[in-house]
Structures are given as structure tokens and as C-alpha cells.
Design a protein around this nucleic acid. Sequence first.
DNA 1: AACCATCGTGCACGAACGTGCACCGCCGCC
DNA 2: GGCGGCGGTGCACGTTCGTGCACGATGGTT
Lengths: 321, 321
Amino acid sequence: MREDDAYRAAAMYYLQDQTMEVIAGTLGVSRSTVSRLIKAARDEGIVRIALRRPSGTGADLGHRLAATFGIMAHVVPVRERASEVQRLEQVAMVAAGLVTDWVQAGMVIGVAWGTTVTAIARHLTPSPARGSVVVQLNGAANTFAGGVTYAGDLVSSIATAFDSTPHLFPVPAFFDFAETKEAMWRERSIRRVLAVQRRVDLALFGVGALAADVPSHVYNAGYLDDAEMAELAADRVVGDVCTVFLREDGTYRDVAINARATGPTPHELRTLGRRVCVAVGAAKVPALLGALRARVATDLVTDEATARLLLEHLHRESVAG
Amino acid sequence: MREDDAYRAAAMYYLQDQTMEVIAGTLGVSRSTVSRLIKAARDEGIVRIALRRPSGTGADLGHRLAATFGIMAHVVPVRERASEVQRLEQVAMVAAGLVTDWVQAGMVIGVAWGTTVTAIARHLTPSPARGSVVVQLNGAANTFAGGVTYAGDLVSSIATAFDSTPHLFPVPAFFDFAETKEAMWRERSIRRVLAVQRRVDLALFGVGALAADVPSHVYNAGYLDDAEMAELAADRVVGDVCTVFLREDGTYRDVAINARATGPTPHELRTLGRRVCVAVGAAKVPALLGALRARVATDLVTDEATARLLLEHLHRESVAG
DNA sequence: AACCATCGTGCACGAACGTGCACCGCCGCC
DNA sequence: GGCGGCGGTGCACGTTCGTGCACGATGGTT
């Protein structure tokens, strides 16, 4: 009843662009109520506002990225002087819109966790997809107490947006001993989650950068100690995708720590349908490059600045090497 | 450059909901300019506002229609007391939004012509689909001069919205002699259009009602003379789809005039991918029923009132019969 | 029955927005 | 070089919108 009026009001307002006064007349309520109805319509996801990137800017960068890495690139135009957090916000909003467009009833949506995915989650508007499932891709419980809650909240907030069932993955980001992981991987409770993960139709993840100015969530939340960080550096690791570490050339198999990591490897990711990688920031460029070379993504969402840096980085490398 | 600013302004306004004042600050222009940029973004289709029908109302009607006819039903909630023209506008806007969502690069879009399709065209916002084609499904030139222009304008305005190539169908709605049609159908120029029509991925059409209060475009524009109208009535014809006449039970093959009609028959329509039928109004109910029974549509867009009438009509019929 | 909590609604005011008008820089033309 | 048209911009004004507040209805509790 109420939702219905909200729909009607929103339709008249956004599609017909009538003034709220007029709408109030037809609906037989006061103008303020109409204002509230329309606000409600927005909040409840009845109204969906999407922006199409104008063909001009970014299109060129997008094509080059697409050609180079065999992906769909979504390059968001942003003011040059905008701060990285602003740019992340913008990109996250666009990514949220794209994901909303892509999600369908019955889909299995896999999500990693981290600053980027959190930002996207914040901008998701409700858009129910009947029978869909949101599954956490990599473990997140850390040695402190907060971890489970953090990733758990993230997964369930995303699940709420799509009105789908959340599946948490109650394991640490990294085991201390590879044998523990192997043991756990034989447990039925874990196998159930792993089975859902393998059915993911739409995976959503960022990339973590080892050498970030604003250190990525993974690296400063107590998941890794100093010795491990040193080991990674010595191994020429530049970042991670779903807490699996990568080098700039896209290799990862012989990185020791990965045997103890809980996220899907690039190899495993590649069996999934659509893999959406979202990344913003100069610091992430090497890690992003590694990720793209490991072919973890089918879609990349980034901003102009990062896209440009990525291509420049690639160019410099090819000149030097 | 300008489009780009429009995009940025629209992004900040609609996604971040910043005030225009703030946006003016970041963009370094006056607030008025921002207002104009955002208006431009809307007009140029950079901003796309879509409404999701709330699960409550109409969903039930939608499900029943879906179950009964094996289609996807999109039932638009509208005030009961709204006039039929208002309801058509509403539905046309929703249909325009849906079509915009569905159109992809490289698609072949087939359109009929008539009041309904015209209304939809009026509400299409630009959304370029690279390499797409819009093809006219049925002839429109009438015995007077205006016909070609009318349908031609319609087709090209739709083509403009999708930035695609228009293909006109330069034949009358009905030939006077079936032999002429057969002769024309052997002409290469016509065969080319027919070939495009067969590749249609998304067909868009209304239904014409023979007994309309507001007579459908087809029936009062001089396409048919009194004798022909009488013939149709005697034949229990209730309306048409793409100028092919149907009875309420969905039969059409033995309607004599159809041998002279230029639109695709239901049988031919059924070979196409997505067929979107849009219809509003009590008068259209029998014709719509015939169309659905002839399985011409995969998707139906209508309003609550028409949907309800349709189901009631069906029910009365089953009780009576 | 009286009371209170809660919710929804309308009113009123300040903030935000759209647009006619005047101005300015640019360009082509005389 | 002066001049007039023109696209674009900012200013100012009237309109439209968001929201705190108070009021009345409703339903549950003592």
C-alpha cells in the first residue's frame, strides 16, 4: 500500500517530472508526504539511478585496457585533483550500479572483503534477486576478536541489498599451518561453503597492495607478522587478490604463504563466471597488474587516473625489460 | 569535455547526493552551470532513472498473467481514477525503461507502429547501442501521403535513441491484391528488409483493437474501407498485431485480409527472440487476449487495470463457455 | 477507562533549485 | 578596426523541496 504510493509518486516525479505539489493532488496527500514517499522510494531501491559513462572520456583508456588484458574495462572519469578516497567513492558507486545491473534472481554472488568491497557495499541500493546467495570468498577472522564481525557484517549487508541468503566463511584469513587448512578443508561444514563458492556466478573483489600509503586492511590488521611481511617482500610479492598473494608478473603458485591462505586462487577464480575486480589508487597498480596477468578478472572497474597509471606502468616495464 | 563535466556533476548529484553548490565548488563553475550540466546529463541520457515495481501490488496480477500465458508480465501500478491516456503514458514510460535496459550493442530491434509505440518512443532516453539496427516490422504507407512520414519518423526517432541504423519498410499497411504482395515479396529491395526482420532480437509492438472507443490508428486512417471493416467484424476479428488480424481465440490464418497484410504473422513473430507487447485500455482486452493466445509476446507491459480486466474477461469466458 | 508510546501526517520555515535576464568573450563580417 | 550575432556564464528572483515540530489517531498496557 505504502510501497505502492511510493512507486506512483516516484514514477510521476522522476519519469513524468511533475512537481510534488501536483503529485500530492493526484494522490490526495500533502506535499510533504509526497516528499517522504519519494525519499522512501529511493531508499528502498524502487528508484534506481544509473549513469552511463559518456562516450568521450575514458572510453579510449577502457578500450586499451580491454585490448591488453582481454577484459571489460569500466573507467570512471574523475577530477584529477580529487583525493584517492573521493575517487574510491566514485568508483565504488559506479561498481555498485554495475553489480546491481548484473545481479539476477537465483545467482550466487561471491564477495571478498576489504576497503574496496566495503565501499561498494555502502553504495548498494536494495534490488531483490529472488533465491540469490551471497557467499564470502575468503576467511577473515583474525587473531583479535573483531574480524568475524567485520567480514560478516559486510557479507550480510550485501546479502540484505539483494534480499539473498548470506553464507559466511568462518575461517581465518590465513592459517598458521598449512596442515590445519587441509584438515579444515576436509570438514563437512567448510566443504559446504567451498561448494557454494565453486558455483559463484558473480565474484566481487578488490586487490590488496603490499606497498600502500594507506595500508590495505589485510596488512595492518594483525593477520601477518613482521617476519611474514619480510618473507613476502623477499618473494617479490606486490599484493593479493582474495588474500592470495601475487607477484607483478601474475605468478603466485610458489608463494609459500598461499598454502595457508583461505581465498580462492586465481586458478580457481577463473572457473567462475563473471569476476569483477575493483581497484583505485596508485599504490595498487603493481598488484592490479599482477591480478590482471593472472587473469582473475573478467571485468575491471577503476578510475581514469589508475587506468592511466596502469598503462604507463606497463609501458615503462616493456621499455625497460 | 562538456559531456564529461556533465557526467561528473550528475555523478556527484545523483550518486553522492551532494548539493549543486558543493559540486560547483569542486568543478570550479557557478551553481547555475551545474544545474544546467545536470539537466543536460538527463537529456542526453547520461543519467538513467529506472523504477522497479514494488513487490506488493501488481506482482500478484503479474504472476497470474505469467502463469496463464507463459510470458513475463510487467504490470504497472496506476491510480484507478487515472484516464486511459495517463495510464498509457505511465506504461509507455515503464516500457521505454525496460526496452532501454534490454537493448545491447549489435541488436536488431523490430518495431511496429501505432499510438502505443509512438508513446514509448516519446519516452526513450538516448542510450547508444553500437551497431544496432531498428527495423520497421509492418508497412505503413496509406492511400494518403502522410503515412510514410509518420511511421518513418517513428522508426528513425527510435533509431536515434539507440544510435542505430533505421531500416524502413516502404510498403502499404495492406495491399489491395494479395498478388501484389507476393510480387513485392520477391523484390530484392523488400527481401532485404524481410531478411533483417527475421533477425530481430527485440520486437516492440502494441495491439490494435477493432472496437476501440478511441479508434486505433490503423482503423481510422484510411487503411481500410467500410466493406473491409464489415468483413472483419463478420469474421469475429477483435484486433491486430503488426496489422495482422486476430480473433479472440488467437486464430488468424483464415482471416482473408491477412493475405494482403504486410506485418509478420504470429507464426513468424514466434521465431524472434524477445517480443514485447505493450497494451493499455479496456477496449484492447479482447485483442490482447487473442494476441497472447497466439503467443506473439514473450513480455507483456500493461497497467493494473488492463491486467485485471484481462483476467476477469478470461474468467467470465471460462464460466460462460 | 485512562494513560502512554508510537506512528503517520500536515504546517511552516529555511535551504536548494530552475530559469529569465544581462553580461562577456569569441568569431565572422562589413 | 569596428560591429553585431551567438554561445556560454553568473546573478537574482521566484519556485520547489527537505525536515523539525506539533498534533491527532491508533493500539497496547496498567
